[in-house]
Nucleic acid binder design. Structure first.
Length: 521
RNA sequence: GGGCCUGUAGCUCAGCUAGGUAGAGCAUCUGGCUUUUAACCAGGUGGCCAAGGGUUCGAAUCCCUUCAGGCCCGCCA
């Protein structure tokens, strides 16, 4: 039997396809803070399974439920103190922290939805606050209240938590203080719940009216599985703990809502190298948006696609990122048959295909080593400048395809962001506008003056420049190390720099000559 | 206390889904290149697959036990 590797997304898709029906793949994220990379894993995992099902000819929907009716739990460290007064109110009704969005929830959601576009994920978006307000939840709420005892029993038994006397599976929203967290039910008789709020107000709500309260998390989740017909949903391992929301949810959806629980794939966390787990509340979180700004979208997808969801991933935002991109580029070359496969490239074809945000290119995209872009973007400020250099040095053809240019441009933008925020100092440099203040030895000056003569006549190409430097130092009996150092000193004001031949060839020849002339003046 | 992940070459890790001769990169060594922002090219060395047991014709891979590390267990991915 030939062993053909199968990608995890195909394995999951096949499992779902055993049931010939329409599948609803769901993701749910509460936009109560910066949406971090873990959410990316949830959404990309689902996207992978969704794509696999579609590819196999199955019928599926990919939905995303933003729980923007969730109350603000506390004033998170990244919020101003003034938000104290909003604690307990739904995040869709709290003002936006930056003032540019419709609400607090929109502030974080918009950024995330934009990120989704870039990584090529396009789910149908549902908003919990709308669903509650327009009454879509009404039936589920009524069923939950009718089954209060059963739900209570399930939660107490499975989660080993004690619920207070008189508890109802419904968080009432106080009409006076508008908080959803402090009103206590006094009496429920369909369709009215009488309540007493800690703010002092006593009143009653009619559950036939939408938006008067919310199902608690452990009930809300199973309720929407049933409402939306969810058949698959990944969840983080924190929720998957024994007695957690996954366990109680599975039981509640079956016994209360009479709906089979969806396949609940557990995925591991993404750890930030050197930082450990990411916690939005501790400020070590890397927002999904941020992550995407420093990583080309296809590479971010690649990272998640090549790892099974159950494996934790350590993300290195330093030099490791460059290796990751190199790994992707190599996989791309193998995919297009330009390079031979090395062992250990797992499920290569599928991984590559799933890594594409949009269409799979028919021919191999134009590749430039990513590390080279790191150098180039520090010489030219932006893509236009970099493009000029690339054209002048013949590193890209004059008739570069539009999509290739778009791709390279996008990559330079990611490199730029990475350099500004995450790159270690070792890879950073700046071509100074004026000659740096340095004291050169006579030896160094002699070297430079010969170099000035010599390079005037050579072809402005890496190898030629490289050779010239060696020849001069040999003739002058100068340590080659000193030669390189001198070059970096007069151009960058530091003692080390990118590989000199390539580096200088990417600079304008005239500029280099002028700089040398100035240095030996 | 419970759960999940991890343990494979000196280091970082593939390979484990569906069992079939142990793999890469880095480091090291040899040769080439006059040494540079992880230099490059060609080749070599290097592993009782954490330990023990089981299933099997056959186990790094499946099952059980143990050990070690990481993470999670109000809300949270």
């Amino acid at each position: 039997m030939e062993k053909s590797a199968m990608h995890w997304a195909d394995v999951l898709a096949d499992q779902l396809l055993k049931e010939k029906k329409k599948h609803v793949l769901a993701t749910g994220i509460t936009p109560s803070g910066p949406i971090h990379i873990g959410n990316m894993r949830e959404i990309l995992t689902t996207d992978a399974v969704y794509r696999s099902i579609i590819e196999k000819g199955g019928n599926a929907d990919f939905i995303y439920i933003a729980d923007d009716f969730d109350p603000l739990r506390k004033v998170y460290p990244y919020l101003p103190k003034s938000y104290e007064k909003y604690v307990g109110k739904p995040i869709s009704e709290i003002p936006c922290p930056c003032g540019e969005h419709k609400s607090y929830a929109d502030h974080y959601l918009t950024s995330f939805l934009n990120s989704l576009k870039e990584i090529g994920v396009n789910p149908h978006v549902y908003r919990a606050n709308e669903m509650y307000k327009n009454g879509e939840y009404n039936e589920a709420i009524q069923i939950a209240l009718e089954n209060t005892d059963k739900i209570r029993e399930i939660i107490e038994k499975i989660s080993k938590r004690k619920l207070p006397k008189g508890w109802l599976p419904f968080n009432i929203r106080c009409e006076k203080c508008e908080r959803m967290t402090i009103a206590k039910p006094v009496l429920y008789e369909y369709p009215i719940i009488e309540y007493k709020c800690d703010c002092g107000y006593e009143g009653e709500v009619d559950i036939r009216k939408g938006g008067v309260g919310k199902l608690p998390w452990r009930v809300d989740w199973p309720a929407r599985w049933k409402m939306l017909g969810v058949t698959f949903e990944p969840c983080g391992k924190d929720l998957a703990t024994v007695g957690g929301a996954r366990d109680t949810g599975a039981k509640i959806v079956e016994e209360v809502y009479g709906y089979p629980h969806p396949a609940l794939l557990v995925y591991e966390f993404i750890l930030l190298k050197g930082e450990g787990a990411m916690h939005s509340s501790k400020g070590t979180a890397l927002s999904g948006e941020e992550m995407l700004k420093m990583t080309p979208p296809e590479v971010l997808r690649f990272l998640l696609m090549k790892n099974q969801p159950g494996k934790h991933i350590v993300f290195d935002s330093g030099l490791g990122l460059l290796n990751l991109v190199d790994g992707y580029d190599k996989e791309e070359r193998v995919y297009f048959g330009v390079e031979e496969e090395t062992k250990g490239m797992k499920d290569l074809r599928k991984t590559y295909e799933l890594s594409q945000p949009h269409n799979i290119s028919k021919t191999i995209p134009y590749q430039l080593p990513y590390r080279h872009l790191v150098t180039l973007i520090q010489i030219g400020e932006n893509w236009d400048e970099v493009k000029k250099i690339l054209l002048r040095t013949g590193q890209i053809p004059k008739d570069l395809k539009k999509e290739d240019e778009k791709h390279l441009k996008q990559r330079t933008e990611h490199v730029r962001y990475w350099l500004n925020k995450f790159a270690p100092d070792i890879v950073k440099f700046e071509v100074t506008k004026k000659i740096p203040k340095i004291n050169l030895t006579e030896e160094q000056k002699a070297f430079l003056s010969i170099m000035h003569e010599k390079i005037r006549d050579i072809k402005w190409e890496p190898e030629e420049i490289h050779n010239a430097i060696y020849e001069i130092s040999e003739e002058e009996n100068l340590q080659i190390k000193t030669a390189f150092k001198t070059i970096y000193q007069i151009i960058l004001g530091q003692e080390k720099g990118p590989r000199a031949g390539y580096f200088l060839s990417n600079l304008d020849k005239k500029f280099v000559l002028e700089r040398i002339a100035e240095a030996i003046k």
